[in-house]
């Protein structure tokens, strides 16, 4: 899980063009939206693309989004459970 979390942080920085940040500066349990990392609605769409491109996971139910994209850890858990399924 820790390896996946580290990889995810790097992928998020690249996919979302967060060049002002280093991957390791993103807290594993830091909220990705709002007062956490401050991502916006376009970033949310890019995270969906990331899941599909890098992990082959399609977010079939859009209402799952807020829960899945809460933190890097919640994303990693979602990826783990859906890759295993």
């Amino acid at each position: 899980m820790e390896e996946l979390i580290a990889t995810l942080k790097t992928q998020i920085v690249e996919q979302l063009n967060l060049q002002h940040l280093k991957a390791e500066e993103i807290g594993t349990d830091q909220p990705l939206f709002g007062e956490g990392l401050g991502l916006d609605s376009i970033d949310a769409l890019e995270l969906i693309v990331l899941l599909q491109q890098k992990y082959g996971i399609k977010l079939a139910d859009p209402t799952e989004g807020p829960k899945v994209f809460q933190t890097v850890r919640s994303m990693a858990e979602y990826i783990s459970s859906h890759k295993a399924a």
């Binding site: 376009i42 970033d43 769409l45 890019e46 693309v49 599909q52 491109q53």
Partner: peptide, 10 residues
């Protein structure tokens, strides 16, 4: 060609 980028689209 793969998945259209929303960030580019805007």
């Amino acid at each position: 060609e793969s998945i259209p980028s929303p960030a580019l689209f805007v």
